[in-house]
């Protein structure tokens, strides 16, 4: 392993170079610096200890502090965000600063091209789900069971209610599968670049339909909102989670920069 005694650099983001001025502070009030090469700069803090760990609460706070730095840089210009807890170590031959500068230099064409693609754009995260009671209200099997339920004594009704919920969930899941292609097509039409989010955060009783990250020009954010508004008007059972605009977290990967 790399000698841990050498000073490392904690990375926040890659930005266009040339900018000067105070960057302020980052995680745990660490002072921020730029490491520049060609027309690029990495925003870093000097890091002598190991990786961040500890209680979830501390990690959460530091992730937020990391995101605040990235967000600040993004408000000022294009950024490629770096994941939390990426620390570049130095060694006797090359200090961390030279490692980072060398990396920027080697990948400058790709980094610059990617920065161009995200300039003036932000990431919007959209999650669409269906509330199962509403979505399945018209399903014939649900209607039949509901009618049957009315006529039953309370004890039986309780058992049947569970069955009803199950039926609603099944019907809603089928509907979600049917809706996905259409909703995806409509949202994709509002954004020049998209990424699918595997992880969704649906509330109880809501069946997820799709989760997308959209990379959208910042002056066109409302077009996504208008499309979502239309979708909501057409499909009253939809529940929409709509987050952003953010730095382009989902669009910072650089195909071809790994050695694998």
């Amino acid at each position: 392993m790399t000698p841990a005694t050498t000073e490392g650099l904690y990375l926040y983001a890659v930005t266009a170079g040339g900018a000067e001025g105070d960057l302020g502070t980052g995680i745990d009030d660490a002072r921020l610096h730029r490491v520049s090469a060609r027309d690029l700069a990495a925003v870093v803090h000097r890091h002598t200890s190991g990786p961040y760990g500890g209680a979830d609460e501390d990690v959460r706070r530091r992730v937020v502090e990391h995101s605040e730095v990235v967000d600040r840089l993004w408000q000022a210009g294009a950024v490629l965000p770096v994941s939390f807890n990426v620390i570049v170590a130095g060694n006797a031959q090359a200090p961390a600063r030279r490692q980072v500068a060398g990396w920027l230099d080697r990948h400058a064409p790709r980094l610059t091209a990617r920065l161009d693609q995200v300039t003036g754009r932000g990431e919007l995260q959209v999650e669409i789900g269906l509330e199962q009671h509403e979505a399945a209200a018209g399903d014939p099997r649900v209607l039949a069971l509901r009618a049957e339920l009315e006529e039953r004594p309370a004890g039986v009704r309780r058992l049947m209610t569970k069955r009803l919920e199950q039926l609603e969930r099944d019907a809603t899941a089928a509907l979600a599968g049917d809706l996905y292609p259409e909703l995806r097509r409509r949202l994709v039409a509002t954004a020049p670049d998209i990424a699918e989010n595997r992880r969704m955060h649906p509330e109880r009783g809501v069946v997820p339909v799709l989760g997308l990250s959209l990379l959208v020009p910042l002056d066109q954010v409302d077009q996504v909102g208008i499309e979502l508004s239309r979708i909501r008007a057409e499909l009253p059972a939809v529940r929409i989670r709509y987050v952003g605009p953010w730095p382009p977290y989902s669009f910072a990967d650089l195909p071809g920069t790994t050695s694998t």
């Binding site: 990375l11 983001a13 992730v63 490629l80 965000p81 994941s83 939390f84 990426v86 650089l254 790994t258």
Partner: peptide, 10 residues
């Protein structure tokens, strides 16, 4: 986003 995404360095 921050634990799963972002630039990676070779």
């Amino acid at each position: 986003a921050l634990l799963d995404k972002g630039v990676y360095l070779d």
